[in-house]
Structures are given as C-alpha cells and as structure tokens.
Design a protein around this nucleic acid. Structure first.
Lengths: 214, 214, 214, 214
DNA sequence: CGTTAACCGAGACGGTACGTCTGGTCTTGCT
DNA sequence: AGCAAGACCAGACGTACCGTCTCGGTTAACG
C-alpha cells in the first residue's frame, strides 16, 4: 500500500490506535490519481496535477510516495474501480463465463478501460508497481478459488484436480482478452467469451485423451 | 511513417526509384532507439538520448517523426529483433508449441524481454504506436496462416475449419504467456508451454461434445 | 535585543532576577546559531539546522523569534564572540593601532570572520538587526571614549578636542578595514594597520594647516 | 560577464563575427534583476521572479548564469546605476571630495541606496558575487587613477608618490561612508565629506612628520 | 561537373514537470 | 494546559526534456 510506511508501532498498553498510514487526504489523492489517469493516460498523469486536483501540496505526495509509479500503485490497490464480484452461477462454465465477462467489461467500458490499459503500461515501467500487480493478481486468484471448490463439490471436477488449474484457465481467458484489446484492438463480444471459455474448459477436462484420435 | 512529407514520387519516365524515406542515418537511429528502450524502458527513452547516441541532431529526429511514439513505432517495424521463424514440425501441436516457445523465448530472454515489455507499456500509452502494434500482429497472424493450412492438409483439421481458429488459439497461447510475464511475473517454462498448447488445442478440437458428460 | 523579549537587564537593586525570557535552551540555540553561521555562512544558516543542532523543535524557535534574522540578532547580541578588549597602551597612536588590530583580527580570523561578514549581510537585510547593529556600535563607541580622555590627559590632544573626533577616526579606520575585506578581499596586515592609523591620526591633528603649503 | 561562455570558435575563413555573449534579452534581464533587488532585497530576489519580470524563461537564465549570485554580479557589472563620473576639479582635494560625494550620493539616494545596501549583503553571502565585487572595485580603482596622475602633474604630489596611495585614501573615505550608513545608520552630509577628505588627505601628505611633535 | 534542393548540425528558446529544500503554520497527542 | 513531534502548505530551487525555431553548411542527384 505504502512503500515506505513506518512500522506499525503497536505500543503495548492503553495506547490509542496510532494513525501511521498515509496522508490525511488519502482518499482525495487516490481519486485524483485515478481520475487523471483515466482522463489523460499514464504520461499525462503528473504528480503536480494530482496535487492540484486533490487540493494537496506536491511535497505531501512526495512525503508518502517516492514516485509516480508508487502513487499510482497505491491508488490502484486502494481502489475498488477494478474490482469485480465473484460469481456463483451453479456451473463451472457459467462461473468462468461470468469472470471473463467481468474482464471483458473492464476492458471495454470506457471509464475502466483507460485505467486498465494504462496500468498495463505502468506495470511495464515501474518495478514496484509490478510488485503490486503481482500481489493484486495473486489476491484475486485466491478469491476466485471457491469457483474451483464448488465445481469439485458439484462433481464437475474430480477431487484430485490440480489446484493450479484455475490459474491456468484464468491466464488463458484473461490473457486472450487483454491481448485482443491491447495489441489487436479488436472488440470483445459475447461470442468471444463463450467460445474462449468453452475451448479452455474442454481442453482442460479432456487433456488425458490423445490428440487426433477421438 | 513521415507525417510531413508529401511524396514527390510521380516522376514520369524512366526515373530510377527515388529514395524519399527517412534520414540518412536511419539505421543508427533505430538501433539507438531500441538500445535505449532496452536499457532504460519507455520512460527513459528520450528523443535527446536517441539523438546523442545515434550521433544525430535532435532536429533531425523531429524532422522525420513527430513524437517519441512514432519514432519507436518506426524502429520496431524496421527491426528484426522481435521477429521469429515460422515452424513446420509436421504436426499442429508441434507447430503451436514452437510458436509459443518463440513467444516465451521473446519474453524471457533478457535482451528481447526488455524491448517487448517496454513496447507493451508503450502501446498502452501511445495511440499511434498502438496502430503499429495492430499492424504488426495482423502481419504476424497472416504469416502464421500456413500452420493452419498444413494442419488441414494433413487431416488434423477438417477443411471447413473456421479460419479464425488460428487467431483464437494464438490469442489464448500468447495471451497467457504475456499475462504471466507482465502481471504475475511468473517464469515461463517448458511445462507451461506443453500444458497450455494441449489445453487450447484439445479444447478447440473437442468443442462439440457437451461438457461434463464424456 | 529581541523584539518580543523583555530585556533581562539585570536590574540593580532588590529585584529578584525573573527569568521570563526565551526558551529553556537559549544558550544551546544561540550557540548552534552562531556555529552554523560560522560554518556555512548566512545562506547556509537555516532554522531547521539550528533546531536540529540545538536539540530543539523548529516550532520552539518560531515561538520565540519570528524569523531567521531575529534569531541571528538575538544570538549576536547574546554573544561575546565579537567583543574585544579596550586597550591602554600609553599613547593615542598605540591605542588606535590596538583597536584597529582587534578589528583586523576579527575580520581575518577564520572563526570570527564568517560571523562578522555574515552579520554585515544580515544587517543589510533585516531592519531590526540593523537597529541592534546601531546600538552595538554606539555602545562600543561609548566604551572607547576613555581612549580619547586619556589622550587629552596625556596632552596628546587639546582639551577642546571635538568629542566626535573619536567616532570620526574609528569610522575611517574600521571602515577601511571592512571595505578591504568585504569588497576588495585584500589581506589585512600589520603594515595596513600602521599606515592607516598614522594617516588618520596625522590628518586629524594637522587639520588647521592649509593643504599643499607645508 | 558570462561564466560559462563557450570558446570563441574562430573558424578559419570568411566566418562572420559570432555572437557569443549572453541571451538575447540581456538588458531586460539585468534591469529586472536590479529592479527586484531594489524592491525586495537579496533574499527576495528570485530567479523565477527575474525570469517572469524580464519576460524570459527560467531555463534561459540558468543557461547563462549558474546561480543567483552570478546573475546579480553580471547585472551589477553591466549596469550604469552604480556608476559615477570621474571628476576633474583642478585640485586633488576637490577630486576626492567629488568622488566621496558620489559615494555618499549613492548611499543616500533612495533608488541607488537600496541596490547598494542590498549588494553589500549579497556580497557577504555569495562567494562568487564577492569575486565580482572585487573585480568591480578593482576596475573602479583603475579608472580613478587619473586623479592621482593629475595631482602629480600639478605638483600637489611628488612624482615618487606610492601608487597604492589612491587605494589607501579611497578605502578610508568610502569605508567610513559605508560603515556609517550600514552600521551606524547615520546620515551623510557635506560636513562629513569635507572633514573626512581633509583628514585623510592631510594625513597622507604629512606622514613623514613624527606624531605629537608639530 | 556544376547546380540546387533537400538535408543536416549547432544551439538558443519558451515551456512543463521533475524531485528537493526550506520557510513558516497548524494539528495532534502525550505529559 | 502546554509543548514535542511532525504533517502540512507555499513557493523557489536547479535540472531534464520537450518541441520549435533560425541560421549556416553539406550532400548528392540531376541536368
């Protein structure tokens, strides 16, 4: 969250909760950061701009975050804009389609697409932001794990299913979506979602069977 | 490529082809551009730096490319650093594995990974660079089409196979690889390649069969 | 002395010495101020630096002195570093030479020169510091008055000598020294002292005689 | 004048005279500098302020002068505000009185006094400005040398007069004036001028005579 | 082979933002 | 209740690049 945050001192005794986390106007700052990112992209996102829009002095920002990347990282982490609900549709395919639909929505909705794409660029440039990204995705994966559990409980998957399967599927699904949007600039539609989920899911389930000899 | 120069082509007669394209030291410029991109990332890539390293005046760069993005686009297009050979292994699965291995190699080899990742960031920031990316990927897809043709000729795929299948597969394969590298920062190994190709390929071939009722 | 600080004048009489003046660590603060002034000059003298070196919070300084100039003024006033002993050599010329030597020493000794020169700049900028300077010099002149009295008593000067003569002489002597150091950056040596005192003194004594007709 | 001026390339051949001396708006810059110095003192003199007032970009100033002190130095040297005419009254005493009157005028006229006093403080604070001051005074002294020459030609001084005499006299005259203004804050009047010049001059002329035995 | 037009180098400039520093103010919580 | 600690605002610092401009000087293709 904050790269240089002092240790949470945790005084023993009657100590009232110590406020060690970030500037007083954190929320305004994060909002301003994402708003600007949304409006002007990563290059147009300047520390001075954030300071002005958040009604905060530039030095305050530098006191808490050493760079634009770190600030953006904190803003992204503290944001719910890129979040999405966890599905429970009653079938594995339905759940996966819902998740991929969320990703597609994220990448195709005007307001979030800019942030997402810009984050992509930001991650590619800022090591510490990359760290945040890794954590973000790991957390996300962990929160998606119930999808797999429920599928096993329903008998759609065998109990000995490789736990890494979910990550594998997600990478293929979300990866395809990202690549189409970022590099091919193709629209993402419902047909894409259905087809991709079906391919990945069938492929995952049918793996033992030798290819080309059905 | 050059925004401000109307081609004075149109010479009637036997005129030998006029070289109207780009500065005299194009090659040095492109090399310098990619070298710097590799060393310092997209943000550290500056027009002034390119000019100095290429032994060229800043003015010259601006004479030919209106922006850093345009310059990088030209450098990427005119480069062979991101190229890769087309495989012909005798089986569809082998071909796909080879292609995915190329992508993985691109993303894991030090010298190319930096360029690729940085380009990723660059695309996310520069609309005109995004255009170049689209063209680059479209071209690449077209050059990969023989893989599909040969698979049909071998009987691995039926003649009425959807021509978009290749793009579909490639998006899943390469997308998974990109996402793992860019966001999850996971290493890409041979096991990843095999597994991903098998999943995608099986899924694509088995699609008609209803899920969960084998 | 200090603009908002009642003088601790040390009243004679029964008054119990009341300590209403300044922070508890006044002495550390003044020392730190002059030390820093000595080390880094007036520009390098910062309130933050003084606070740190004196082991005091910045707020405390601002509670008692409104500005850097005021703080420096107080420090200079409460300091004995620029003081010098009053001479009694037995001759007017000797006394003057001793005084001028003191001034020269003040301006050429490393540790005091910085303070003196910096004070010069400070006076030029701070009206209230200028006031202190005026008082300081007036006081100094008053304390030098015995030099004149003794010279009259010895018969070196006539009893009706203009009392302003001393100030006049001092201004010429010290002024020359200051000007050489501050503006010409010339070294001040014994020859300078002798020569200047002789010139000023002879000039003062010989005034009645018309010029050019010796 | 300019501290970082590139070497005068002096191309062989018909090279037209190269203009290597300072920014195009030098005059505006110097004027703005002195105006601000006059208005707000040395501390209130900021590079940004000069840039704005001169209608010039801040970078331009830094391109030519490395610091505020250097800029002020150049402005002072290139200025006529602190200049003064060289006198030729027909007598040494008259010349000296005129010069001292100039100094007094400089220090007592509202518009110039501010600059002079502020420069005083500036010199005390900035080593490289002190260098400029030295040059300025050396130049001034050189230009005053004719006063001495004419006095010798007139027979007021013997041909073997020590050439350093002039500096000696000037230091005493101007030094006394500066000291009175800066430290004592006394007004400078015609009586001061007459008296000081007479003292210094008599003293200088009468030096051989032993003190106290007229 | 000489002309000439396109190209280039040098470098000053206005401009934006950077990341830092210090001067002063204001809040907060401990003693 | 008062004072420390220190977060904060204001604003200048000096730097790096940006993208533009002017001005000579070089190339090199054509005629």
């Amino acid at each position: 969250m904050n790269a240089q945050q002092p240790p949470p001192v945790s005084r023993v005794g009657s100590a009232p909760v110590k406020r060690t986390s970030g500037p007083r106007k954190s929320q305004e700052i994060f909002d301003a950061t994402l708003d600007l990112l949304q409006d002007k992209g990563y290059e147009g996102l300047t520390v001075e701009g954030v300071a002005e829009r958040a009604g905060v002095n530039k030095t305050t920002l530098y006191r808490w975050w050493p760079s634009k990347g770190a600030l953006l990282g904190a803003a992204l982490v503290n944001s719910t804009r890129l979040g999405f609900p966890l599905p429970d549709t009653g079938s594995l395919q339905g759940d996966l389609e819902t998740v991929l639909n969320s990703v597609v929505a994220l990448l195709t909705t005007q307001s979030t697409a800019n942030i997402a794409i810009a984050s992509l660029g930001a991650v590619a440039q800022s090591p510490e932001l990359a760290l945040h990204a890794r954590n973000f995705f790991a957390d996300r994966l962990a929160r998606e794990q119930p999808i797999l559990d429920r599928a096993i409980a329903r008998g759609e998957l065998t109990p000995d299913t490789d736990p890494a399967l979910l990550m594998h599927l997600m990478d293929m699904l979300a990866g395809a979506a990202w690549l189409r949007v970022a590099f091919r600039q193709l629209p993402l539609d419902a047909e894409f979602v259905t087809r991709t989920v079906r391919t990945a899911l069938h492929g995952a389930l049918e793996q033992p069977r030798p290819l080309g000899h059905p």
